[in-house]
Design a binder for these strands. Structure first.
Lengths: 96, 96
DNA sequence: TCTACATTTCGAAATATGTCGAATTATCGA
DNA sequence: TCGATAATTCGACATATTTCGAAATGTAGA
């Protein structure tokens, strides 16, 4: 997972998907933010094939979920992943 | 930081330094665990020069501290680093 | 069915990373 | 000062990663 997050393009994608609510508010776990592959690539100066490659890497690392919805493919982060990663740096709490 | 943690040897080193207290107990922030470079390499089948290279990478990434103590060099993790990393995956809390 | 759109797969090329051994630096103790 | 121990720097090499463009795949709508 850290290897996947260790690339700046992939980290940016991950951040776009994880910033699902405004500071101070609580994220509703039922509606994690979703972006299509194309939307995720907006603003990033990167070829579509490269973007696809990075998304695949994030998915294979277990960091993001992907599902086809008509013509496009939607991506989102399972909130459990964030909890697990957060917990990794918190020794006192249980971490499997 | 994630790039530095994305290598299995470096992640192992980082974990050895971060597991500073037993599960359920509270780490005393004043006495973060310390290991010398040689101790950190024990059990890892890796050349001293490679180990040194990885430690340098972890240090440059801001993940570990290093300080000479006589003949050896001691390494440890500043607990603030763990807090910051943990917070990165916790959107509701403030993260600068 | 044909076309446009969204995304992926497949090479290929440039660059980065991980690794080692040999030589070097730093520190301590005899 | 000399030798042993601890760690680093340097140069070289093999492997991995990032990136692209071209071609292929999947889907929806005319």
């Amino acid at each position: 997972m850290f290897k996947a997050l260790g690339n700046s393009h992939r980290l940016l994608i991950f951040q776009r998907l994880s910033r699902c609510c405004l500071p101070g508010t609580r994220c509703d776990l039922e509606e994690a933010i979703r972006f299509s592959v194309g939307e995720l690539g907006e603003g990033m100066e990167i070829a579509p094939s490269t973007l696809s490659h990075h998304l695949k890497a994030l998915h294979h690392a277990g960091l993001i979920e992907m599902e086809r919805q008509g013509k496009q493919i939607n991506c989102w982060i399972d909130p459990m992943v964030l909890e697990k990663l957060s917990g990794f740096f918190n020794p006192p709490a249980e971490f499997k």
